[in-house]
Simulated scan of single mutants.
Amino acid sequence: TDKIRDTEDRSLQNLSRTKEYNSPESLSSPHSSSDNNANQNNKTLANHVAAYFNKKFNSHMIAIEMGYNLSDACQRYRNSERINLFWGIITGQIEEMVYHHQMKSISQLLQHLIKMKKLFSTQQEPLSTRARRAIVSEPNSPLSVIANRRLSALSLFSVKEHQESTVLHNEFVMTNEQFFESLKLFYSNKTSLQIDELFQSAKHDLQYSNELIEFSLLFMEDDETRFGEFLSTLIKQINQEKSSYVEQIKQILLGYPLITVSQFCRAIYMTDPNINQNELHRYIEWVFSIKNFHSSQQIKPLDLEDLLRRLENCACFKH
């Protein structure tokens, strides 16, 4: 709600600047478009929600009231993991990339299952596990191209979309064995217990009623956008793996009351040697609450407990 209240003040302060942007001189400037894009990209979710309320209701007072209603609703339904995630992001307590990482993980799994379905459908004779892994991991193979083309038209399915789509009914079906093998291929670093947990949650969603798995059903949301058991289990495992990742970093940093950026980077590299520079910089920017990190910056050390709390609310994972 503070963001909503501040929106009008910022709009008034920027009124003369807006006139400058709309003048012929500014439109001809080579920097005006990129500057506007940069400002747009720097907006937080709270900024976007505030702007949306102001635009939709065309009343600053109603926008403020809707902000309070939003806060009240999120508190009332705080038992919902997805609502808690939304509220954490909008209040700046959780990195927005946490949500995007979850959605990307779901999308990648769906893409993999589509590829595997195509592979199982076209193979003339049994292939070894190694051969299957080589085929489905090749992004430019014909199978991958077909799967990506199909995936581009799909999001999380609604019940209505599924009922009306013969494609989803007829094409996205595997045997139990094929589905289990597909999970093992995609999640080669998961334990057998984790794979079995995913498999059993899929059977739970499908009510254990069939020897075939219609895997499109596993990616549906209900009318209140809630996930089924399968996707909920997947997200739970993602969170567990992140907790394990953070715990490894914690063990390296124990004994240091204040953590510098260099100490933090060293702990990350020891835990996750394959992380790239962009990802590492994203971690630093979130954990130390800075923007546009570069190595020459002077950044205050962070208390270990504060650092771990920030890291737990970051989209961090082993690469």
Rank of each mutant, 00 (worst) to 15 (best):
T1D: 09
I4S: 02
D6A: 10
T7I: 01
E8N: 08
L15S: 03
L15A: 11
R17L: 15
K19Q: 14
N22I: 04
S23N: 07
S26T: 01
S28M: 10
S33K: 09
S33V: 06
Q40S: 13
Q40E: 10
N42I: 04
T44E: 14
N47W: 02
H48S: 06
F53E: 02
N54Y: 02
K56V: 08
H60D: 11
H60A: 09
M61A: 13
I62V: 14
I62A: 07
N69M: 13
D72G: 05
Y77I: 02
R78W: 04
M103A: 12
M103V: 08
S105H: 06
S107G: 07
L110P: 02
H112E: 09
Q123C: 10
R133Y: 04
A134P: 00
P139V: 03
N140K: 12
P142M: 07
I146C: 05
F157C: 09
N170S: 13
N170T: 12
E171D: 14
N189I: 14
S192D: 15
S192Y: 04
Q200M: 07
Q200N: 09
Q200R: 14
Q207M: 07
Y208H: 15
F215I: 10
D222W: 09
F227A: 08
F227H: 14
F230A: 13
S232C: 04
S232W: 01
T233R: 15
T233F: 09
I235A: 01
I238W: 03
Q240I: 07
Y245A: 04
I249T: 04
Q251R: 15
V261A: 10
N274R: 08
N274G: 05
N274F: 11
L280K: 13
F293K: 04
S295M: 02
S296C: 00
Q298N: 13
L304Y: 05
E312Y: 11
F317A: 10
